[in-house]
Every structure is written in C-alpha cells, then in structure tokens.
C-alpha cells in the first residue's frame, strides 16, 4: 500500500504545482501510515534525490524520452500500470493542465473514484472524504470516495509546500508506453513572464486604466513584486491585453497569495476567478465598487497616482 504522486514537468523542469502535490501526498501517506512514493514520466534536469525533502522516500521513473511529449492516453496507461505494479491505493496529481487531461482517464482504467479540485487533506476518520472547491470557488463540497483506489487532483496554490529533511532513492520502472496519437506540432511559451496559474503574486488591471497605453504602471508594480500580470474580461475582450491574461469565470481561475486589483469593479464573474486568493488588495476610485466587499485591503483613489507610489514604497521595502 502506498500513496503515489505524479511529478509533472515541462521543458525539463518540475512544475511548482507538483511540489505542492508531493508535500500533500506525503501528508496523506503519513495520515494513512503508508509510504509516499513519486512517479516521474520522462526525464527532468532536477536532482531527483532532493525531492526527498518534500516527504517522499522513493521515486519511480519511466525514463522513456517519448514521455516528455504529453499525450493523455499514453500518460494514463503508464500511470495506471505503475500504480498497479506499486500497489498504490491513493494517487495524487496536481489539478493543472496535465492533471485535468489525465486524472479522469486513470480513474476509468483503475475504476478509481476521483475528486478534482481538492483543497485540503482528506478526512479519513470515517471513510475517505475530500474537500473540493465548487460553484466557481463560491462554496466547498465534501466528497466521499467509495472505491478501493482513490485519486485526488489537488488545486494549485491550495496546499503549502512543507520542505523536510531527507533524500529519496530513484528506481527505474520498465513500462513500455503505447504509441502516442497526439502529435505536438509546436510549443509557444510566453517567455520572461511568470505563468499566471503558478504565480504567488498577481497584479491585475481593469477598465479603470482607460487604455492599453496605461499598462506601464501595472507592469512596473508587477516587476518589483516578481508578479504575473492579469486583466479583467472587458480588457481582454477589447484586446487591450492578450486573452491569456484574462482571469475570471471564463478565464483563468487563480489562487495566488496576493492579488492586487487595479481599476476593476469586481463583477461576480470576475470574483469567481480570483476569490481563492489569500490576500486581496483593491485600488479603485469608486468607493461603491463591489470589489471592496471581497477585499482585505483597499484604497479609494486614482490608480494613476496610487500605483506608482505603491511601486516606489515596495522598492524601498525591498531595499
């Protein structure tokens, strides 16, 4: 019996959401008094034995280079075969682009109940109950898994990485991946920017900024905070900013440590995308903006005066 955690990677680097999944999976294993093991498909440049500090004792690697290209069908087959081989009773993946594509498939292959969007450790006092986010973060549901094997897809930024002491050993698994049916034609990464869904801090602008030429103040603030930039739906729809920056109900749903909203009124659809943020700061000249009700800190004032001052003060703080 073991908890098996999928290590997800891109361009040779393990993703941040996977470190969270490792810490979470290790805590689940401790709770169930079984071992925590990790599974890596393909190859990465990270030092694998270092992953012991996230609480896993053993890393199993299917070191087939073809697995560096993602095909959900192939990944599901390899994960399911590994889980059976290793007698895993709980499988943990990050609910990111990979997790969303693959967890359901593994669930079918292993007849394993799956909870996606988990935000807390399971309650194992009576059965196996996982808390997940529902209604676009406006509520939580406690979902019981009835099957022998259980799969949890953990929401990014929901579980803190808890580094401990320890190293992990690496063992190769010889599983032959089936032939991929998805051909990757090209990959286009937006370079030099912090990926929005993984960012600790996000600085976001809305219609209050009046036009794309005024985004400099947002970018300057984001730069001193090493933050990702985002925007509201009207801003993306009018092409002031690219669609990949749109957060909200129909855009990205994010949960950073700090979300700074500048000139965004805070429509319910926007809140659905950001209300899992730990701390929300709202800067808006309209004191009646609904966003203030969902905020932790606020400044009623002109963004064009307040934001550059904020950037300067943070620079001062950071020395």
């Amino acid at each position: 019996m073991s908890v098996l955690i999928l290590i997800d990677h891109s361009e040779g680097q393990i993703k941040k959401s996977s470190f969270e999944a490792l810490s979470y999976g290790a805590a689940v294993a401790q709770q169930l008094n079984v071992s925590a093991q990790a599974l890596l498909l393909g190859t990465v440049t990270n030092n694998l034995s270092d992953l012991g500090k996230y609480g896993v004792s053993k890393i199993f690697q299917v070191a087939d280079e073809t697995l560096n290209a993602f095909d959900a069908q192939v990944y599901a087959q390899v994960i399911a075969e590994s889980a059976q081989l290793l007698n895993a009773t709980v499988i943990v993946v990050a609910q990111n682009q990979t997790g969303k594509a693959v967890a359901g498939r593994v669930s079918v292959l292993l007849k394993a109940g799956l909870v996606t969007g988990a935000i807390a450790l399971p309650d194992t006092s009576n059965g196996f109950v996982v808390k997940k986010s529902v209604f676009s973060n406006k509520a939580f549901a406690n979902v019981a898994i009835h099957s022998a094997i259980k799969i949890i897809a953990l929401n990014p930024n929901s579980y803190s990485v808890v580094p401990t002491e320890g190293t992990a050993t690496v063992e190769l698994l010889s599983i032959k991946p089936k032939e991929a049916k998805v051909k990757i034609v090209s990959v286009n990464k937006i370079s030099g920017e912090v990926p929005l869904t993984e960012a600790e801090i996000v600085v976001s602008g809305g219609r209050g900024l009046k036009g794309p030429e005024n985004w400099g103040i947002v970018e300057d603030l984001a730069k001193v905070l090493h933050a990702a930039t985002a925007c509201s739906r009207p801003v993306a729809d009018t092409h002031w900013r690219p669609h990949h920056e749109h957060v909200g109900q129909t855009g990205f749903q994010i949960a950073p440590n700090l979300y700074i909203a500048i000139g965004i009124s805070g429509a319910i659809q926007h809140l659905a995308g950001v209300n899992r943020s730990k701390t929300i700061v709202v800067i808006n000249k309209d004191p009646e903006a609904p966003f203030f009700k969902a905020a932790d800190y606020g400044i009623v004032g002109d963004a064009f005066e307040v934001v550059p001052q904020l950037t300067a003060e943070i620079k001062k703080l950071k020395g």
């Binding site: 939580f140 549901a141 905020a295 400044i299």
Partner: peptide, 19 residues
C-alpha cells in the same frame, strides 16, 4: 465511485481595511 456528503460556504471576509 463518489458521492457528495455535504457543502460548506467559505467563511465570510472580515471586511476590508481601507487605507
């Protein structure tokens, strides 16, 4: 394979601190 036991609403925000 799964069943929803119950729901919870998130705790209300303490209220905005205006600066």
């Amino acid at each position: 394979l799964t069943s929803c036991i119950n729901f919870e609403l998130p705790p209300a925000k303490a209220g905005v601190k205006l600066v």
